[in-house]
Amino acid sequence: MGLIQLLFLTTLWLVAVKARLNSRQPSGYIPSRIVGGSDVPVGESVPYQVSMQYSTRGGYTHFCGGSIIAPDRILTAAHCCEGLNASRMSVVAGIRNLDERGGQRSQVVSYAIHPNYKELETSDIAVLTIQPPLVFNNVSVGLIAFNDKQFVGGGVPVSLTGWGLRLPVPFPFFDNVNYPNTLQRMSYHTISNDLCRASGMDSVTETEICARGPFRGACSGDSGGPLVRNDNGEIKQVGVVSYGLVVCGLFVSPDVYTRVSTFSDWLQERVDA
């Protein structure tokens, strides 16, 4: 590693001294996105992925991600919902680009936040109820498996999708690079919770799962989105994007996800309600 690169990384690390949520909240959070990802190829779909959007005077604005767990239920992060007006929230399914018109838009009727939720501590998970229900075609719109109770440890290959910043921080005058409309995908590996805590995420509990990779990771705007693994050909959701450090995508900085297996019974209750 060259001296200039080392100094740059050191500067970023010194800036990244506090945790940040990974959402682009309508109340004014700085928008940012997946670092180190690449465009989902043309003609390929991520059928369980949705964009959560907020109605403003200028139209709909993407601010979080989510995943489809039933025709009328969306899994996301609690901090993507808390304090927001459900009547101004909607989700869009079946799109690759945020400016596409061919997707399905449904209104958020209500949301349920886990009763144990504490910001940056635990249970950052929520379920949206939407209307009308989504129409599945098993190509561009479909379910993600969420009720596997297997505990995922370290060293497991996982992937993340979302509409996010490609860079660790948003650079001025480079909006076309910072904020692509195309769905991004990035792969890396989980790490053990012990290693996650030793890497600066002191408050991580067994209700969370961590992952990291060189110059890649989640960022604001990706919150609520699905972390998935391939289990013998079946795609299963293992995490929900929760939080990380201020500067995204540093190898020394793990991403923290809500561990879906911990909440599978609660999620099933919300689906059956």
Rank of each mutant, 00 (worst) to 15 (best):
C248G: 15
R216S: 12
G217M: 09
D222V: 04
G249C: 10
C219P: 09
G221C: 08
V241K: 10
K236L: 05
S242V: 11
K236A: 03
G221V: 10
G233N: 01
D231K: 01
S253Y: 06
D222Q: 03
G213V: 13
V240P: 03
L227V: 05
G221T: 07
E234L: 13
P226S: 05
R229V: 00
A211M: 09
V228I: 00
F251I: 11
A218Y: 10
G225F: 07
R212I: 05
V238H: 03
N232R: 13
G225W: 04
L250Q: 13
P226G: 04
G244V: 12
D222I: 02
L245W: 14
G217F: 07
G213T: 15
G249R: 07
L245I: 15
C210D: 01
L227A: 03
N232E: 14
R229P: 00
G233W: 00
P214A: 07
P226Q: 09
S223K: 09
R229L: 03
G244I: 10
R216M: 13
L227Q: 03
F215N: 11
G233A: 04
C248S: 15
A218F: 05
F215H: 14
G213Y: 09
N230S: 01
I235H: 02
G221N: 05
D231A: 06
P214D: 03
K236F: 01
R216H: 13
A211R: 04
Q237N: 11
P226N: 06
S242R: 13
S220L: 02
P214H: 07
S223T: 05
Y243A: 15
Q237F: 05
G244C: 11
G239K: 13
K236V: 05
D222L: 02
L245V: 14
G225A: 12
V252G: 10
A218S: 10
G233E: 00
R212T: 05
G244L: 11
N230G: 00
G217N: 13
S223D: 02
G224W: 03
R212N: 06
E234K: 12
G221P: 01
C210Y: 01
C248Y: 11
V246N: 13
L227T: 03
G249A: 11
N230Y: 00
D222C: 07
S220G: 06
S253M: 15
Q237G: 10
R212E: 02
N232P: 09
V246F: 13
L250F: 12
G249I: 04
P226C: 10
V238D: 02
S242A: 09
S223A: 08
P226D: 05
C219E: 11
R212P: 03
C219F: 11
G249M: 08
G224S: 04
C248P: 12
Q237L: 06
D231N: 05
V252R: 14
R212Y: 05
S220K: 09
G224H: 05
L227Y: 04
I235W: 01
F215E: 14
F251K: 15
V241W: 08
V240S: 09
V252K: 15
V246G: 11
